[in-house]
Design a protein around this nucleic acid. Structure first.
Length: 324
DNA sequence: AACTCGTGGGC
DNA sequence: TGCCCAAGAGT
């Protein structure tokens, strides 16, 4: 959970998750849908899928691996996490380097190479630093130093135990480290989201593809999201409903005429690699409306606990006229 | 090697 | 307000 995410953001999720899945066996037996529900809003959903797969792998092999090399084989456990578990949980000589420790090392040695190119060199420098005893405590101390003293902006060099040996500080420009490669421009993508509301308050949703962006999460139907999308072209992608079976001829289900109305305003959301602007269309459906193939209705209470990512919560709240 | 992959807080 | 950043990993 803590991969690329702050302790503050993680804490409530962690508590709920551990209450639901107190053991690796419990997690391994869970449905991915229930795992994603508890991850909804936290982001980077591949972590949830990987953690679930990881639990199953651990149960299958019969125990937790206790060395870096075997930990690396598990899904979702990369160089940092493998080293962190080895050092902290098993007191192994390993050097986990997170973003904080990375910054400490770079400044200590005034590494001129830009990130992320410098990562391998930084890891080697860190590996040379590991102490004779308590590798886990040392690793956590380096991370906490980066988080509280050797901060990205306005580092508190006066309070740093490395002040006397820091190459960046000696040069007088610690804050200018680490050097970073410029990021590619992120183009705005547009799309239209359809919020169909049944007379009893149920909302139409579907499941996203199991992998990729928001993989496995629940969403309201939308058009494609693309840079050259024209909202006026959305009608063709609107979900189509049929009237309930019965009365008319069984062979031909009558299509239900639906009036989509634009909800004033737009939803803006920022993903890591692109910003998104969604126009929201809303329609009221009779209680008898049949969900299109691959979609289903969920009630208000289920919306609250569903695997809806934040961007979809924004869309639904906006369409239901809730204050934000 | 360079992309992809979320979200919220801090300044 | 816009940008940076966070206990990174997978492809």
């Amino acid at each position: 959970m803590l991969q690329q995410t702050t302790v503050k953001a993680v804490t409530p999720y962690y508590r709920r998750f551990m209450a639901a899945f107190p053991t690796v066996e419990a997690l391994a037996q869970a449905d991915i849908e229930d795992v994603l529900k508890l991850w909804a809003g936290l982001g980077y959903y591949a972590r949830a899928r990987n953690l679930h797969a990881c639990a199953r792998a651990v149960v299958a092999r019969g125990s937790f691996p206790d060395c870096e090399e075997e930990l690396l084989q598990l899904p979702g456990i990369g160089p940092y996490t493998a080293a962190a578990i080895a050092a902290i949980a098993f007191d192994r000589k390993a050097s986990p380097v997170d973003g904080n420790a990375e910054r400490v090392i770079v400044r200590l040695f005034a590494v001129e190479q830009e990130l992320p190119d410098a990562k391998p060199a930084i890891r080697e420098l860190a590996a040379d630093l590991y102490p004779a005893r308590r590798p886990g405590d040392f690793a956590q101390a380096m991370m906490d130093l980066g988080a509280t003293v050797c901060t990205p902006k306005a580092p508190a060099c006066g309070a740093c135990p490395f002040a006397g040996s820091c190459a960046a500080l000696a040069r007088g420009d610690a804050e200018s480290f680490p050097r970073k490669k410029k990021k590619p421009e992120r183009r705005l993508r547009r799309g239209v989201a359809f919020v169909a509301i049944r007379a009893d308050g149920h909302v139409l949703v579907r499941r996203r593809a199991p992998n990729g962006l928001l993989g496995g999460m629940t969403e309201v139907p939308t058009t494609e999201w693309s840079s050259d999308f024209v909202p006026a072209d959305a009608a063709a992608d609107a979900p189509r409903f049929s009237a309930p079976p019965g009365r008319r001829e069984a062979a031909v289900s009558a299509s239900l005429k639906v009036s989509w109305r634009r909800v004033p305003g737009v939803i803006n959301h920022v993903f890591t690699h692109f910003p998104l602007e969604l126009v929201v269309l809303r329609a009221r459906l009779p209680k008898s409306a049949v969900a299109p193939k691959g979609m289903y209705w969920i009630d208000r209470q289920s919306i609250a606990s569903a695997a809806l990512p934040s961007v979809m919560r924004k869309v639904v709240s906006h369409a239901l006229g809730e204050q934000s």
